[in-house]
């Protein structure tokens, strides 16, 4: 059982000075937190947000180009979480469940955007094993990698994130995004090629 000690904790000190400090409060486990939120207790709802918003915001940022889009996604995700908390069965950890729900929100959002006409590259590549893209094993700051992912075209970014970071299977991605598996494979390869070029460029600029 995980304990959430909620006060003006470290995470909050990192943020902008304008953040409202909530009074100290101790939550013993997931169950108490979830039940408190379902009962409509604003204190628990605030704790749920403060505890998990950081994780979810990072995921949203990975999947979006601009911060404004990431904020919109985070808002949608939390609205879904608050409305669906009653359906949480405590079979997995609360953190895992919320991350999954956020990812699903992002996927749904992408699908509707695709219908509205975000252009995707539908070129397909032949069946077979994906060629491995390798780069020099060097230490690259997280912020730099993050920027590279966020600068990918929408379709590439979606598929790269789902496959390489969130660990979806290619067939799952094809189903979720309503795309041909061959298309998914070729897009993933192209995304990797773009990222490799980005990393090489970055290494060059660092050396000079």
């Amino acid at each position: 059982m995980q304990k959430y000690i909620f006060s003006g904790n470290k995470k909050m000190e990192n943020t902008s000075s304008g953040r409202v400090k909530t009074t100290e409060h101790l939550v013993n486990n997931d169950q108490e937190l979830v039940e408190g939120c379902i009962a409509g207790n604003p204190k628990y709802q605030r704790i749920l947000y403060e505890e998990f918003a950081g994780d979810l915001y990072f995921i949203c940022k990975r999947y979006s180009h601009s911060d404004a889009d990431a904020e919109d996604l985070l808002q949608d995700a939390f609205i879904k979480i608050f409305l669906n908390l009653k359906g949480f069965r405590f079979e997995s950890s609360l953190r895992h469940w919320m991350k999954r729900l956020a990812t699903n929100t992002i996927i749904t959002n992408f699908r509707t955007k695709k219908k509205e006409g975000v252009k995707l590259d539908y070129e397909e590549c032949e069946q077979g094993v994906l060629p491995v893209v390798e780069v020099q094993d060097v230490e690259i700051p997280m912020e730099v990698l993050m920027r590279m992912v966020r600068e990918l075209p929408p379709g590439y970014r979606m598929i790269f994130n789902m496959r390489e970071i969130d660990g979806y299977e290619l067939s799952e991605i094809a189903e979720e995004l309503n795309m041909n598996p061959a298309t998914v494979r070729s897009q993933l390869f192209k995304a990797k090629a773009v990222l490799k070029k980005q990393i090489e460029n970055w290494l060059k600029s660092e050396k000079v």
């Binding site: 915001y57 911060d67 893209v133 390798e134 020099q136 094993d137 997280m142 790269f160 390489e164 970071i165």
Partner: peptide, 23 residues
Amino acid sequence: MKEIGELFKEKLTDQQEPPPLQV
């Protein structure tokens, strides 16, 4: 040399970033 996906996965998994207050 390293597979490019792993490079990103190491750094970008389970990270946190506080969102802006207005959210």
